[in-house]
């Protein structure tokens, strides 16, 4: 259901982003990148905030429910995906409007560091150990990353404000936003939020199955072997019944 909605919203976004919305006076057609660039970073920030909230809930709740940990992991993965999209799309847009792929602007630099920080977070999630060890470790990392982001942003802002050559380059050079453009942007935000919600639900479910598999898979396989060995060889020819 959510998936269908996400597909419909994406079709809408394509129609409005590429069709109905007008070209910009200065940036002409390239302004259409806005409808991907802004929603993706917006959703990414929401994803990271939700990761932190889920991490905190896991760590401080009495039950220590692993569901929160899996949600945090799924959300962080999608956040990294969306920040990656923002960076790629933003670099392309920068080439079109500024003439360069990258500017050492405060926001760009913070975003790049955010990207790397959460790649580190995902690496920590894959360190192994039993699910509760992983959950505690990642929850602490999730909260530390949130502590880090304002610090990085502040220091990068200080760095650039002292070194910037007069102009502050802004991706949106235009003065006001056209009504239809704003609406298209809104469609973009809805579309990417739905995509996020749909993916995060399924990813959380896959992570649950992975945990379940590693927990019970071996036992189940051993049980099955044992059952097979006890059976008479003649009744053992069905095959294809392995469900690890």
């Amino acid at each position: 259901m959510l998936g269908v909605l996400a597909i419909i919203a994406t079709a809408w976004l394509v129609a409005f982003g590429l069709g109905f919305s007008p070209a910009d006076r200065d940036q002409e057609e390239s302004v259409r990148i806005l409808y991907v660039h802004v929603p993706t970073i917006w959703v990414a920030y929401v994803a990271f905030i939700l990761t932190a909230v889920a991490s905190g809930t896991y760590l401080f709740s009495k039950k220590h429910s692993l569901g929160f940990d899996r949600f945090a992991g799924a959300s962080a993965e999608l956040g990294v995906l969306f920040v990656g999209l923002t960076l790629i799309v933003g670099a392309l847009w920068g080439r079109l409007t500024w003439g360069v792929f990258w500017q050492w602007d405060a926001r760009l630099t913070t975003t790049a560091l955010l990207f790397v920080t959460y790649i580190g977070y995902l690496a920590v999630r894959r360190l192994g150990g039993d699910p509760h060890q992983r959950a505690r470790r990642s929850a602490v990392m999730g909260l530390l990353s949130v502590l880090l982001i304002p610090l990085v942003h502040w220091s990068v802002r200080l760095w650039r404000s002292l070194h910037q050559d007069a102009t502050v380059l802004r991706p949106d050079g235009q003065v006001k936003m056209d009504g239809l453009m704003l609406f298209s942007l809104f469609v973009g935000v809805v579309a990417f939020s739905l995509i996020y919600a749909w993916l995060v639900i399924h990813r959380t479910r896959v992570l649950w199955m992975e945990d379940h598999e590693s927990e019970y898979g071996l036992e189940a396989a051993v049980e099955q072997r044992r059952a097979e060995a006890l059976e008479t060889p003649s009744s053992n020819s069905t095959g294809g019944k392995t469900d690890g």
Binding site: L113, V116, G120, A123, V124, L148, V152, V156, L158, W159
Partner: peptide, 15 residues
């Protein structure tokens, strides 16, 4: 893993 975790974190110190 260590460099991947530490280097982004200490970027404010480098600046």
């Amino acid at each position: 893993l260590l460099p991947l975790l530490v280097l982004p974190v200490v970027s404010p110190v480098v600046i």
